[in-house]
Amino acid sequence: MAGNLIDNQGKGDVSWSWPPIHPEGRKYGLIALGVALLVLWGFGWTFIGTALLFLAVGVFAFFRDPERSVPQDERMIVSPADGLVSLITEVEPPRELQIDDGSGTAGLPSGPVTRVSIFMSVFDVHVNRAPIGGSVRRLVYIPGKFVNADLDKASEENERQHILIERSDGQKIGFTQIAGLVARRIVPFVKPGDMLGVGQRVGLIRFGSRVDVYLPAGTSPKVLLGQTVVAGETVLAEFGEQRLIEGIAQ
Protein backbone atom coordinates (compact mmCIF):
# COMPACT_ATOMS: atom_id res chain seq x y z
CA MET A 1 0.00 0.00 0.00
CA ALA A 2 1.39 3.38 -0.96
CA GLY A 3 2.38 5.78 1.79
CA ASN A 4 5.19 6.92 4.02
CA LEU A 5 6.97 4.19 6.00
CA ILE A 6 6.73 4.79 9.74
CA ASP A 7 7.53 2.66 12.76
CA ASN A 8 7.51 2.70 16.57
CA GLN A 9 11.18 3.66 16.71
CA GLY A 10 10.62 7.20 15.48
CA LYS A 11 11.07 6.55 11.77
CA GLY A 12 8.85 8.57 9.44
CA ASP A 13 7.60 12.08 8.79
CA VAL A 14 4.16 13.15 10.01
CA SER A 15 2.36 16.42 10.64
CA TRP A 16 -1.16 17.50 11.49
CA SER A 17 -3.42 18.55 8.66
CA TRP A 18 -7.13 19.02 8.00
CA PRO A 19 -8.59 15.66 6.96
CA PRO A 20 -9.62 15.59 3.29
CA ILE A 21 -13.26 15.13 2.27
CA HIS A 22 -13.97 11.93 0.39
CA PRO A 23 -15.18 12.62 -3.20
CA GLU A 24 -18.35 10.66 -2.49
CA GLY A 25 -19.42 13.35 -0.03
CA ARG A 26 -18.30 16.56 -1.72
CA LYS A 27 -21.46 16.91 -3.81
CA TYR A 28 -23.69 16.57 -0.72
CA GLY A 29 -21.66 19.15 1.18
CA LEU A 30 -21.73 21.58 -1.74
CA ILE A 31 -25.48 21.15 -2.19
CA ALA A 32 -26.06 21.82 1.52
CA LEU A 33 -23.74 24.85 1.37
CA GLY A 34 -25.46 26.19 -1.74
CA VAL A 35 -28.91 25.93 -0.14
CA ALA A 36 -27.64 27.66 3.01
CA LEU A 37 -26.16 30.56 1.03
CA LEU A 38 -29.33 30.90 -1.04
CA VAL A 39 -31.45 31.11 2.10
CA LEU A 40 -29.05 33.60 3.72
CA TRP A 41 -28.41 35.94 0.79
CA GLY A 42 -31.32 35.24 -1.51
CA PHE A 43 -34.14 35.29 1.02
CA GLY A 44 -32.45 37.01 3.96
CA TRP A 45 -33.58 34.36 6.42
CA THR A 46 -30.69 34.64 8.86
CA PHE A 47 -31.76 32.10 11.49
CA ILE A 48 -32.63 29.32 9.04
CA GLY A 49 -29.64 30.11 6.82
CA THR A 50 -27.23 29.94 9.77
CA ALA A 51 -28.69 26.59 10.83
CA LEU A 52 -28.24 25.29 7.27
CA LEU A 53 -24.62 26.50 7.29
CA PHE A 54 -23.96 24.40 10.37
CA LEU A 55 -25.67 21.48 8.63
CA ALA A 56 -23.39 21.91 5.60
CA VAL A 57 -20.33 21.87 7.87
CA GLY A 58 -21.68 18.69 9.47
CA VAL A 59 -22.10 17.03 6.07
CA PHE A 60 -18.51 17.84 5.11
CA ALA A 61 -17.31 16.54 8.50
CA PHE A 62 -19.27 13.30 8.07
CA PHE A 63 -17.44 12.51 4.82
CA ARG A 64 -13.95 13.30 6.16
CA ASP A 65 -11.36 10.74 5.16
CA PRO A 66 -8.20 11.08 7.29
CA GLU A 67 -4.97 9.20 6.65
CA ARG A 68 -4.23 6.34 9.04
CA SER A 69 -1.03 4.68 10.31
CA VAL A 70 -1.71 1.06 9.34
CA PRO A 71 0.24 -1.73 11.14
CA GLN A 72 2.12 -3.94 8.67
CA ASP A 73 2.20 -7.28 10.50
CA GLU A 74 0.60 -10.40 8.99
CA ARG A 75 -0.43 -11.64 12.43
CA MET A 76 -2.71 -8.66 12.97
CA ILE A 77 -6.34 -8.08 12.05
CA VAL A 78 -7.10 -4.35 12.14
CA SER A 79 -10.44 -2.67 12.65
CA PRO A 80 -12.37 -2.01 9.42
CA ALA A 81 -14.36 0.83 11.00
CA ASP A 82 -14.22 3.76 13.39
CA GLY A 83 -16.66 3.53 16.27
CA LEU A 84 -17.72 1.77 19.45
CA VAL A 85 -17.36 -1.97 20.06
CA SER A 86 -21.03 -2.57 20.83
CA LEU A 87 -21.22 -6.39 20.70
CA ILE A 88 -18.81 -9.31 21.09
CA THR A 89 -20.54 -12.66 20.73
CA GLU A 90 -20.20 -16.23 19.42
CA VAL A 91 -22.21 -16.81 16.23
CA GLU A 92 -22.25 -18.77 12.99
CA PRO A 93 -20.84 -16.71 10.11
CA PRO A 94 -23.47 -15.46 7.63
CA ARG A 95 -24.68 -18.09 5.18
CA GLU A 96 -23.58 -15.89 2.25
CA LEU A 97 -19.98 -16.09 3.45
CA GLN A 98 -20.09 -19.90 3.89
CA ILE A 99 -21.94 -21.42 0.95
CA ASP A 100 -20.39 -22.48 -2.34
CA ASP A 101 -21.02 -19.51 -4.63
CA GLY A 102 -19.71 -21.22 -7.76
CA SER A 103 -16.54 -19.14 -7.91
CA GLY A 104 -14.28 -22.07 -7.05
CA THR A 105 -13.15 -20.39 -3.82
CA ALA A 106 -14.32 -21.89 -0.54
CA GLY A 107 -16.11 -19.62 1.88
CA LEU A 108 -15.73 -19.47 5.64
CA PRO A 109 -15.99 -22.82 7.45
CA SER A 110 -19.11 -23.61 9.45
CA GLY A 111 -19.07 -23.48 13.21
CA PRO A 112 -19.29 -20.72 15.80
CA VAL A 113 -16.75 -17.88 15.66
CA THR A 114 -16.35 -14.60 17.50
CA ARG A 115 -18.18 -11.67 15.96
CA VAL A 116 -17.02 -8.17 16.86
CA SER A 117 -19.62 -5.49 16.06
CA ILE A 118 -18.53 -1.86 15.67
CA PHE A 119 -21.25 0.80 15.83
CA MET A 120 -20.60 4.02 13.90
CA SER A 121 -22.48 7.12 15.02
CA VAL A 122 -22.98 10.10 12.71
CA PHE A 123 -19.91 11.67 14.36
CA ASP A 124 -17.52 8.86 13.34
CA VAL A 125 -15.52 8.56 10.12
CA HIS A 126 -17.59 6.33 7.83
CA VAL A 127 -14.94 5.19 5.35
CA ASN A 128 -14.35 1.48 5.94
CA ARG A 129 -11.00 -0.29 5.47
CA ALA A 130 -9.72 -3.81 4.84
CA PRO A 131 -8.92 -5.68 8.09
CA ILE A 132 -6.25 -7.76 6.30
CA GLY A 133 -4.46 -7.62 2.97
CA GLY A 134 -5.46 -10.04 0.24
CA SER A 135 -7.87 -10.72 -2.59
CA VAL A 136 -11.56 -9.85 -2.49
CA ARG A 137 -13.27 -13.22 -2.94
CA ARG A 138 -16.88 -12.20 -2.35
CA LEU A 139 -18.97 -9.05 -2.33
CA VAL A 140 -22.60 -9.86 -1.58
CA TYR A 141 -25.23 -7.11 -1.27
CA ILE A 142 -28.52 -7.92 0.51
CA PRO A 143 -31.45 -5.48 0.66
CA GLY A 144 -33.28 -5.28 3.96
CA LYS A 145 -34.71 -3.15 6.73
CA PHE A 146 -33.26 -0.07 8.46
CA VAL A 147 -33.69 -0.88 12.16
CA ASN A 148 -31.29 0.52 14.75
CA ALA A 149 -27.83 -0.78 13.78
CA ASP A 150 -26.94 -1.08 17.49
CA LEU A 151 -29.37 -3.99 17.86
CA ASP A 152 -28.18 -7.59 17.46
CA LYS A 153 -30.94 -8.41 14.94
CA ALA A 154 -29.55 -5.79 12.52
CA SER A 155 -26.98 -8.40 11.41
CA GLU A 156 -29.76 -10.50 9.87
CA GLU A 157 -32.54 -8.00 9.05
CA ASN A 158 -30.93 -4.77 7.82
CA GLU A 159 -29.63 -3.81 4.41
CA ARG A 160 -26.07 -5.12 4.37
CA GLN A 161 -23.05 -6.08 2.29
CA HIS A 162 -20.79 -9.04 3.03
CA ILE A 163 -17.11 -8.95 2.04
CA LEU A 164 -14.70 -11.89 2.11
CA ILE A 165 -10.95 -11.32 1.82
CA GLU A 166 -8.41 -14.12 1.42
CA ARG A 167 -4.67 -13.79 1.98
CA SER A 168 -2.04 -15.57 -0.09
CA ASP A 169 -1.60 -18.15 2.72
CA GLY A 170 -5.31 -19.04 2.62
CA GLN A 171 -6.36 -17.18 5.76
CA LYS A 172 -9.76 -15.55 5.31
CA ILE A 173 -11.64 -12.77 7.05
CA GLY A 174 -15.30 -11.99 6.48
CA PHE A 175 -16.95 -8.76 7.52
CA THR A 176 -20.31 -7.10 6.93
CA GLN A 177 -21.28 -3.47 6.36
CA ILE A 178 -24.74 -2.85 7.83
CA ALA A 179 -27.00 0.12 7.18
CA GLY A 180 -28.88 1.63 10.12
CA LEU A 181 -31.78 3.91 10.99
CA VAL A 182 -30.37 6.92 9.15
CA ALA A 183 -27.96 5.23 6.75
CA ARG A 184 -29.63 4.50 3.42
CA ARG A 185 -26.82 3.48 1.14
CA ILE A 186 -23.74 1.27 1.26
CA VAL A 187 -21.13 2.46 -1.25
CA PRO A 188 -18.48 -0.12 -2.30
CA PHE A 189 -15.05 0.93 -3.57
CA VAL A 190 -13.93 -2.61 -4.47
CA LYS A 191 -15.12 -5.62 -6.47
CA PRO A 192 -14.38 -9.37 -6.47
CA GLY A 193 -10.85 -10.09 -7.67
CA ASP A 194 -9.35 -6.83 -6.41
CA MET A 195 -6.09 -7.09 -4.48
CA LEU A 196 -6.07 -5.04 -1.28
CA GLY A 197 -3.48 -3.94 1.21
CA VAL A 198 -4.33 -4.06 4.89
CA GLY A 199 -6.10 -0.84 5.83
CA GLN A 200 -7.01 0.01 2.24
CA ARG A 201 -10.35 1.79 1.78
CA VAL A 202 -13.13 -0.63 0.75
CA GLY A 203 -16.29 1.50 0.99
CA LEU A 204 -18.46 3.70 3.16
CA ILE A 205 -21.92 3.72 4.68
CA ARG A 206 -23.82 7.00 4.76
CA PHE A 207 -25.03 8.52 8.02
CA GLY A 208 -24.74 6.05 10.91
CA SER A 209 -24.28 2.29 10.64
CA ARG A 210 -22.35 -0.78 11.81
CA VAL A 211 -19.66 -3.23 10.73
CA ASP A 212 -19.47 -6.86 11.91
CA VAL A 213 -16.13 -8.70 11.77
CA TYR A 214 -15.99 -12.50 11.95
CA LEU A 215 -12.72 -13.61 13.54
CA PRO A 216 -11.27 -17.00 12.51
CA ALA A 217 -11.84 -19.94 14.84
CA GLY A 218 -9.24 -20.03 17.59
CA THR A 219 -8.79 -16.24 17.53
CA SER A 220 -9.86 -14.01 20.40
CA PRO A 221 -10.48 -10.26 20.19
CA LYS A 222 -7.90 -7.87 21.59
CA VAL A 223 -10.54 -5.19 22.14
CA LEU A 224 -13.12 -4.76 24.89
CA LEU A 225 -16.84 -4.17 24.85
CA GLY A 226 -17.35 -0.41 24.95
CA GLN A 227 -13.90 0.38 23.51
CA THR A 228 -13.55 3.01 20.79
CA VAL A 229 -11.63 1.72 17.75
CA VAL A 230 -10.06 3.41 14.73
CA ALA A 231 -10.29 1.97 11.21
CA GLY A 232 -6.95 0.80 9.83
CA GLU A 233 -5.13 1.40 13.12
CA THR A 234 -6.69 -0.44 16.07
CA VAL A 235 -5.67 -4.12 16.23
CA LEU A 236 -8.84 -6.20 16.72
CA ALA A 237 -7.08 -9.56 17.02
CA GLU A 238 -4.04 -11.63 16.10
CA PHE A 239 -4.48 -14.80 14.04
CA GLY A 240 -4.58 -17.89 16.24
CA GLU A 241 -4.18 -16.03 19.54
CA GLN A 242 -6.65 -16.87 22.30
CA ARG A 243 -6.29 -14.82 25.44
CA LEU A 244 -8.83 -13.37 27.87
CA ILE A 245 -8.53 -9.59 28.17
CA GLU A 246 -10.42 -7.85 30.96
CA GLY A 247 -10.99 -4.14 31.47
CA ILE A 248 -12.62 -1.68 33.81
CA ALA A 249 -15.07 1.02 32.75
CA GLN A 250 -14.04 4.23 34.52
Rank of each mutant, 00 (worst) to 15 (best):
Y141T: 07
P131W: 09
G174H: 08
P112F: 06
A217V: 09
V187R: 14
V113D: 10
A154C: 05
V140I: 15
D212Q: 04
V211Y: 03
A217D: 11
G170R: 03
G104I: 09
G104E: 08
I163P: 01
G208W: 07
V127Y: 04
S220A: 15
I132Y: 07
I118N: 09
A217H: 11
V122M: 14
D100H: 07
R167I: 00
I186N: 10
L164Q: 05
P188I: 06
K172E: 08
V127M: 14
E157D: 07
T105D: 14
I173G: 02
V213Y: 06
P216H: 11
G134P: 05
K222H: 13
R115P: 05
G133T: 02
P143A: 14
A154V: 01
T176N: 01
P112K: 15
H126V: 08
R160E: 06
D150Q: 13
P143K: 14
V127E: 06
R115G: 05
L204H: 06
D101T: 11
V116Y: 09
N148S: 15
P221S: 08
V136N: 04
G107Q: 11
L215W: 09
M195Q: 15
R137E: 15
I205Y: 07
R137M: 13
A183P: 02
V125H: 09
I165K: 03
M120T: 05
P109S: 12
S121A: 13
I118M: 08
D101E: 13
V187F: 12
D101A: 12
R185W: 11
P109D: 13
V125T: 12
V213P: 06
F119V: 00
F189T: 03
G203E: 10
R201C: 00
L224R: 14
S168P: 00
P221W: 07
Y141N: 09
V182F: 14
